[in-house]
């Protein structure tokens, strides 16, 4: 076990993070719910010590739930990569609100920018990628491959439970170790007009990928 801020306190910090004002369907913008984000971050730090004192990247950082959470858990620096200007603005307000300075944000298209000088540079890469369910099937796997390039150690990610077999196989062919740390239920409040129910439960797996 590694030292870590109490889970309850972490969750309280994440609860104050503002959400997308006008989520964009093309980018599959969903917020990482605070109970989910805090459990992920708590596990990453308390079980594996992969945040405190580390160089951490957050791919598709959105409004900054994981970025800010990792900064709160004393990452040496968290770099959030995000394409959308509106999300970045909200994230920046959240960063100011939380009075955190160990964060840098870079506006870029993670899928196209491929900042190769960053390769193997990060200790830990976090992401809650687009699940790739609508028009952009496979996008979460592209994010994963990029994340694995950036990290020399571990990648933590969420993927739909229904794709587990495929993901484990893909990880094997990429030569990385994949572990499902937890099965979670992503309780998505109705974000978009096409959501007919009040909220939708999506089963997701919380993964740890490690380079061998």
């Amino acid at each position: 076990m590694f030292p870590c801020l109490k889970l309850r306190l972490l969750e309280e910090r994440l609860q104050c993070i503002s959400d997308f004002q006008k989520p964009k369907i093309l980018l599959e913008q969903y917020v990482t719910p605070s109970h989910l984000g805090s459990h992920m971050l708590y596990t990453i730090q308390s079980q594996y010590g992969d945040i405190s004192g580390k160089l951490v990247a957050d791919l598709g950082s959105g409004c900054g739930a994981l970025t800010i959470g990792a900064a709160v858990l004393d990452a040496s620096l968290v770099v959030g990569f995000e394409i959308d200007e509106d999300a970045i603005k909200i994230c920046q307000e959240n960063v100011i609100e939380h009075e955190i300075s160990n964060i840098d944000l870079v506006q870029c298209d993670v899928l196209k920018y491929a900042p190769s000088r960053f390769n193997d540079c990060f200790d830990t890469v976090l992401m809650n990628p687009p699940f790739g369910t609508k028009h952009n099937a496979g996008v979460d796997m592209k994010f994963l491959e990029i994340a694995l390039n950036l990290s020399h150690n571990s990648v933590y990610s969420l993927h739909k439970t229904s794709t587990r077999k495929f993901i484990l196989k893909r990880a094997e062919s990429l030569g990385v170790k994949a572990e499902v740390l937890a099965e979670l239920v992503y309780d998505l409040p109705t974000t978009y007009k096409f959501h007919k129910k009040k909220s939708v439960d999506i089963e997701v797996d919380f993964y740890r990928f490690t380079k061998q």
């Binding site: 870079v106 506006q107 870029c108 920018y113 900042p115």
Partner: peptide, 9 residues
């Protein structure tokens, strides 16, 4: 701008 580089092309 505001500390954030825009690397979009």
């Amino acid at each position: 701008n505001n500390g954030i580089p825009n690397m979009l092309l």
